[in-house]
Nucleic acid binder design. Structure first.
Length: 272
DNA sequence: AATCGCGCCTGACGGC
DNA sequence: TGCCGTCAGGCGCGAT
């Protein structure tokens, strides 16, 4: 469940963990994720430590402890289960952290494209984090920034928007949604957008992400108390996954094309 | 320097 | 019923 809104909703849902005392046990049932989990380091640095803060950078979750920080990425299919007591393990429950109070945090990821790494004392200097672009919901992501960044890129704007070195957190779904909202054709070379279009796209991206996070608030309750199924937000998607359906604005059929080997949805009439 | 395409994995779904 | 191809929300890497 990997784009920024889902990760942010997950982060907020996990904050109660800060009150569950020390991690008393870490069970790693499958260490082969995108990179092998550094089992020894994780065990050594986290056992008998409380989690002091949970933050997010792009789609990465960062868990801070006195001994350092560990990173979690949910890949394509990962999500976290926050249990108040033991439950039987699912086949794809790869890691479990048990807390003093009996609460448990489980990392579940059928496709295993995710990651769990130990970053130590200077997490933001880690290679995975140090070259990330700005956070989309901050003032750093603005029209001037997007204009400057895009000047020497001929990439389709949709692919460009998904580059985490430019702006973090926008994945395949929200890229299509933001461009639809901004009335910009996903195929447009990034360097052909003018300042006004950059402003619109920035505004649209922020609006879409914020709305998704708000709706994730609903999912948050499910996340904490039921089986932890990820939120899909599909009911609010305007174009994603809606090939051939009428455009919600002009009713002409939504088109699906492939860009950078990813499905891309747009309205050929509304988006220029 | 920028961009493309591959591969990592499992599972769901549709067609035959 | 089973088999097979296709598709899936990410991302780093090597090749061009």
């Amino acid at each position: 469940m990997p784009e920024l809104p889902e990760v942010e909703v997950t982060r907020r849902g996990l904050l109660p963990l800060l009150k569950h005392g020390n991690i008393v046990d870490i069970q790693i049932r499958q260490s082969k994720l995108r990179w092998p989990i550094p089992v020894q380091q994780i065990q050594h640095h986290l056992k008998n430590q409380p989690i002091q803060a949970i933050t997010r950078r792009g789609k990465y979750l960062l868990f801070a402890c006195k001994t350092g920080t560990f990173l979690m990425h949910l890949g394509m299919s990962g999500h976290l289960k926050y249990l108040s007591a033991y439950q039987p393990f699912d086949k794809h429950d790869h890691v479990e952290f048990s807390f003093q109070t009996g609460a448990r945090l489980r990392y579940y990821d059928p496709r295993r494209f995710g990651a769990l790494l130990w970053l130590g004392d200077h997490p933001l200097q880690h290679p995975l984090l140090c070259s990330l672009g700005c956070e989309p919901l901050t003032r750093a992501f603005n029209a001037d920034y997007l204009l400057t960044q895009s000047r020497n890129s001929k990439q389709p704007i949709k692919s460009f928007l998904m580059q985490q070195q430019v702006v973090v957190g926008i994945g395949n779904i929200y890229a299509s949604e933001a461009l639809f909202h901004a009335h910009i054709n996903p195929l447009r070379p990034a360097n052909t957008l003018d300042l006004g279009e950059c402003a619109t796209l920035v505004k649209s991206s922020k609006a879409i992400l914020k709305k998704a996070i708000r709706q994730g608030g609903t999912t948050l309750r499910d996340f904490a108390h039921t089986d932890g199924k990820p939120g899909y937000f599909s009911h609010s998607l305007q174009v994603y996954g809606r090939e051939s359906e009428p455009c919600p604005v002009c009713a002409s059929p939504i088109q699906r094309i492939t860009l950078g080997q990813r499905s891309t949805y747009f309205c050929g009439k509304c988006q220029h």
